[in-house]
Design a protein around this nucleic acid. Structure first.
Lengths: 225, 225
DNA sequence: ACCTGAACACCGTTCAAGT
DNA sequence: ACCTGAACACCGTTCAAGT
């Protein structure tokens, strides 16, 4: 019985899906700060360098993790009117990113898009055209709302990271500001804390969209079908 | 001649101002990525650890650098009407941060305020009240615009960091998207590049402010003196 | 083709010791 | 009071070598 070498090669121990899953697990259990190529490798019983066969670099890995999450997200019900659709789509996009807000840095650094969001971007452009914008205006509005989204995520996740909101340095600075020089700062301090609690994303979103869809002069309104 | 020890102690080699100045110099010459406690110490001919006598940690140092810059900034001329004042103040604040956009991370991480901006925040609140908002509405608007500002700075500085805008991964992804599934993405690609070039900060700012100052119903407008 | 080992060139920060 | 030296506990990534 001559042993013939099977043509199929030995399966690689690692592959992209396993790496992404391991990364996701580390984040879930130990938080985003615990994620490094070394910890992912250890989780898989491999060397850090083995990962580079399957993933370009760390930022790409983060985007892959986000992409996997976004694919699992249940699709939102979309209203029929373009304005409502636009709002719903961005809320959905924002909600997806809000689960992993620290990926935004990787997204910006690597200038990448998670492929899973492409359908939503297409839908956003489609809704913008349906609302009467030109493609250029739609691109403008997209970038504006994208910036708005990035900002909300950055501020919100930084606020959330602080476990004890009581001893915020900002709030202390404002409260301890000399009232004769800064009368309003001191008075506003309690409102600050209250405003921090709830998200302002939707309100800002609606303001930006409505400003783009309606002309500045209040009388002339953009025609809706 | 008996030598009497002078009561004044030997001056410390380091002080906060020197450290901030050295850090500023490194950033100016070699960029923000070159800044570390080690490089600052080397610049001053000292050990990294010597810095900790004068500055709490790295984030605090970054905020101090921003603060020094902000103090050097020429004051803007402020319009008399509250809305115009609000816009001018935020444009000024944004312009200051836009010179050192990477400090925003440190600002958010450490939950700190650069003291030099306190007068502007006070002025923003004052203008908001003059425009007819309550203090709570003013705080809300402040946070909303702050998020908007953070987002614009993050996106803009990431875009600026890319030396060759031609080979942006995002633009490549959009151009190479299958046109039958994503017809608008492909068509929008050229507009994307164009929109990236110019800042949308002012437009977004005005939209957010106007939404806060006017009621949503177009008829009733906020009274202006 | 896939993976390992060792190294490079760094980080911020702590601690104990010096003057 | 101010500063140093050595170390801790890490990073992402490159390179040459193994199977």
């Amino acid at each position: 019985m001559s042993s013939v070498k099977p043509p199929k090669r030995r399966r690689a121990r690692l592959d992209r899906a396993a790496i992404v899953e391991a990364a996701d697990g580390i984040i879930a259990r130990a938080g985003p700060d615990a994620l490094s190529l070394r910890t992912v490798a250890k989780e898989l019983g491999a060397t850090p360098m083995a990962l580079y066969r399957h993933v370009p670099d760390k930022d790409a890995l983060l985007v892959l993790v986000l992409n996997a999450l976004y694919e699992r997200l249940p699709r939102p019900r979309l209203p029929r009117d373009p304005r409502g659709r636009l709002i719903a789509l961005w809320i959905h996009l924002h909600a997806g990113l809000a689960r992993y807000p620290w990926v935004v840095d990787a997204l910006l650094n690597s200038d990448t898009i998670a492929p899973a969001v492409l359908p939503d971007i297409e839908a956003i452009l489609e809704a913008s055209l349906a609302a009467g914008l030109t493609l250029e205006q739609a691109a403008r509005l997209y970038r504006m709302v994208w910036q708005h989204t990035v900002g909300e995520l950055a501020v919100q996740s930084a606020t959330a990271a602080r476990t004890t909101p009581q001893k915020s340095a900002v709030l202390r600075t404002m409260k301890s500001a000399p009232p004769q020089r800064f009368p309003l700062l001191a008075k506003a301090a309690p409102h600050w804390a209250a405003v921090r609690a709830k998200s302002l994303y939707r309100d800002g979103l609606v303001a930006l969209i409505d400003a783009a869809l309606t002309t500045r002069t209040c009388g002339r309104q953009h025609p809706r079908p």
